[in-house]
C-alpha cells in the first residue's frame, strides 16, 4: 500500500487519478462484470485495476486514450481473476473467455487489431495508441517487458497472417 500511496504523492498525479476514477469507474465495472458475471468479483477486479493505474503514469487529460487505458486495464484484471477462478485455466490468449470479444474484423488492419484476442489487443492498443513503453505496459498488465515484446511480435505475426488470408495487400 505504501508503494502506491507514494505513487500518488504528487498533487498532479492525485488529480489525474481522481479524474480517471470519477469518469471511468462505472465503465471499468461494466467491462469486468461482463467477464466475471458477478458484482463482487467485478468490484475486486476494478479495485485491482485502480491499484495498477495508481502506480503508473496516467494520461494528462480525460478522453479516448484515458478511456481506452481504463477499459483495457479493467479487462485484464477481470480476465486474470476469471482465469484464477477456473479449475482449468483457459489458453494463454483467452480466446474463449466470455464477455471480452472485440468487434468483428472487417479485413482492414484497424479492424483486425480491434478483433484480436484480448491479450494481443491490449498490448497493441497500449503501445501504439496510448504510446506506453513495454515496461509501462508490463506494469499495467502484470507482465514483464520481455513478455510484452513477445506478445507484440506474436500479435504482428497474427495480424499479418490474418490479412494475408483475407487477401489484403500491405
Amino acid at each position: 500500500m505504501l508503494i502506491y500511496l507514494q505513487a500518488l504523492d504528487s498533487p498532479e498525479d492525485r488529480t489525474r487519478f481522481e479524474a480517471l476514477y470519477t469518469a471511468y469507474r462505472g465503465l471499468m465495472f461494466h467491462v469486468a462484470r461482463r467477464i466475471l458475471n458477478n458484482d463482487q468479483d467485478a468490484e475486486d477486479a476494478v479495485h485491482t485495476a485502480f491499484l495498477s493505474l495508481a502506480e503508473h503514469s496516467l494520461p494528462p487529460e480525460l478522453g479516448p486514450r484515458a478511456r481506452c487505458l481504463a477499459a483495457t486495464v479493467a479487462e485484464r484484471k477481470a480476465i486474470d481473476l476469471y482465469r484464477a477462478r477456473q479449475r482449468h485455466p483457459v489458453s494463454e490468449l483467452e480466446e474463449d473467455v466470455p464477455g471480452c470479444e472485440g468487434p468483428p474484423s472487417d479485413g482492414t488492419l484497424a479492424g483486425a487489431m480491434a478483433a484480436l484476442p484480448p491479450r494481443h489487443r491490449e498490448v497493441l492498443l497500449l503501445k501504439y495508441y496510448n504510446g506506453y513503453s513495454a515496461a509501462e505496459i508490463a506494469g499495467f498488465l502484470g507482465l514483464t517487458p520481455e513478455n510484452i515484446r513477445q506478445i507484440t511480435a506474436q500479435a504482428k505475426r497474427r495480424l499479418a497472417a490474418e490479412l494475408a488470408e483475407r487477401g489484403e495487400v500491405i
Partner: peptide, 9 residues
C-alpha cells in the same frame, strides 16, 4: 491503424 482500432474497440 491504432486510433481507428481503439475507436472500434
Amino acid at each position: 491503424a491504432a486510433p481507428e482500432a481503439a475507436e472500434r474497440y
